[in-house]
Design a protein around this nucleic acid. Sequence first.
DNA 1: TTCTAAAATTGAGTCAATTCTGTTTTTATG
DNA 2: CATAAAAACAGAATTGACTCAATTTTAGAA
Lengths: 204, 204
Amino acid sequence: MSGLRARQKADRHRRIIEAAAALFREAGYEGAKIEAIAAQAEVSIGTIYNYYQNKGDILGAIVSMEVNEVLNAGRGVVANPPANVGDALDTLLGIYIEHSLHYLSKEMWRQAMAISTQMPDSPFGQAYTGLDRSLTDQIRALIARLQEIDLVRQDIDSSALGELIFNNMNMMFIEFVKRDEARIPTLRAAIRRQNRILVAAIGV
Amino acid sequence: MSGLRARQKADRHRRIIEAAAALFREAGYEGAKIEAIAAQAEVSIGTIYNYYQNKGDILGAIVSMEVNEVLNAGRGVVANPPANVGDALDTLLGIYIEHSLHYLSKEMWRQAMAISTQMPDSPFGQAYTGLDRSLTDQIRALIARLQEIDLVRQDIDSSALGELIFNNMNMMFIEFVKRDEARIPTLRAAIRRQNRILVAAIGV
DNA sequence: TTCTAAAATTGAGTCAATTCTGTTTTTATG
DNA sequence: CATAAAAACAGAATTGACTCAATTTTAGAA
């Protein structure tokens, strides 16, 4: 039986995350004061810091949920990719990008990215690096899969290529969240244009 | 004649930057308190905020100097590139990377990058985006130059390719500054490995 | 049921960036 | 040279993230 203490703990975790997510959306990351999050979650300031090391870690928990959903959605594409290289890449990266603003606003992404480079050794910093790595690995897996079914040349270094594709997408995504007026279709088109060079180079 | 006011202004600018650069190096960005920078520069706290909107902008001024030096050094390579594509790229990107830790520590880079994504519309945020763009344009110029001398196929989209190469290098550089133990030669080798795929694809 | 150690909560206090409001210095004008 | 407007300066006050010592709650042994 899950003791009272464990249940209360889980409940408080949930309340803090929900309060923070709501306030981050409403007021932005900086605008959401810890005091307000505490009040809305009906805990004290001290308790929040008992659960999360700092404000960034709260945002980190939300980012992790979002990225894990995306990774999950990506698995289907890797298992069963479209029958040409360009479409396969576009489909997988498309899933990443289309999902990206589901729970997180651009401002929240900006903060999350900033924190992850600012404090790479904090719990969230490490988690974020891990998420990037998982996405890279998924792209690598797609390339390897395409090699298996002979859509990509066998002599291609799939590991290096996967990282190259991820890095380019990620950098484009960073620029995308930095500009509020940037739009998803434009971003996808730009990434496709760059990947076209690769697609031409690696097809059998 | 440059009035007294203008001269004092330039002098104070210089003193603030010098004090900040020294303290950032000694104590790190967070460790360098504004109060200490003000004391060392022999101005008041208020004056610092009269010259720079926030602490990040002071760091920004230092980063700009560094990147501008790098851009300058890069011009020579674009004007007179090595006679094969792989070496040409390696030489230009090598200059960027080897220069990168001249004035700035990894910790300063982390802070600078973080601020530029966190506040893309602040003076420094915009300047940083501009610097990234200048570097991208320089890589594009190199590709175009290589096309002129027939080392790169004419049908390659040099603009998209230049951006792709920059994005990949930049992302690798971000990961590099996030890990204190990462070394420059390893970074350069990883980038070369990725670019090899491209080099094979675009050569005549 | 009662008691005690461990775990968790609380919120007033600390610290440092940034803002704000008078004061001083510089410049331009008669 | 006197003076008023403009610009720059100073540092006390504000603000908000985070800490820590005191208090409360829970688990489980007697």
